[in-house]
């Protein structure tokens, strides 16, 4: 066990965990932030996507000891109550089916739009190809990203 001070969603959090614990499990098991999802544990599905200093990062591959003072943003920190334009676009397009992957999709989409506010179809497809959706909502996700891009 080791002690870590983490900067999550703008607040400071203290945790005592093994140094190799992925941030995914620190968020879920220790900080009660369960919007970041477990899907594969090997950075192949994108369900655990968070922002590390604003960059989309797979939380299952990020050990707590590597984080230091970096700013972690999870879906819970993206907006107070779902007001973020990307979340709004998701609601307007009514994207989710089962919904499990969607927080990871949204975190990836926010990062994509930050780097490229007006992506082409191809740029959306490639930028989002690391996020799996088993329900197959890809066409709606694309529509939602375009909607957010236009707002």
């Amino acid at each position: 066990m080791a002690h870590f001070t983490l900067n999550v969603n703008g607040a400071s959090h203290q945790v005592d965990v093994e140094p190799d614990t992925p941030i995914l499990w620190v968020l879920r098991d220790h900080l009660n932030l369960v919007g970041t999802k477990y899907g594969c544990g090997i950075a192949q599905c994108g369900a655990c996507t968070i922002h590390l200093n604003g960059m989309a990062t797979r939380a299952c591959q990020l050990q707590v000891s590597m984080v230091g003072n970096s700013e972690i943003t999870t879906i819970e920190g993206l907006s107070e109550n779902g007001e973020h334009p990307v979340q709004q676009a998701w609601l307007e397009e009514d994207v989710p089916q089962c919904g499990y992957c969607q927080t990871g999709q949204i975190m990836s989409a926010v990062s994509l739009l930050k780097n490229n506010p007006h992506p082409s179809d191809e740029q959306i497809e490639m930028g989002m190809s690391g996020n799996l959706c088993r329900c197959g909502t890809y066409t709606r996700i694309k529509k939602a990203i375009k909607r957010a891009s236009n707002n």
Partner: peptide
């Protein structure tokens, strides 16, 4: 619209 839509996109504990 999906009655859980907002809970889903804000990462509420649903699953």
């Amino acid at each position: 619209k999906n009655v859980d839509g907002k809970n889903i996109v804000t990462g509420k504990p649903l699953f």
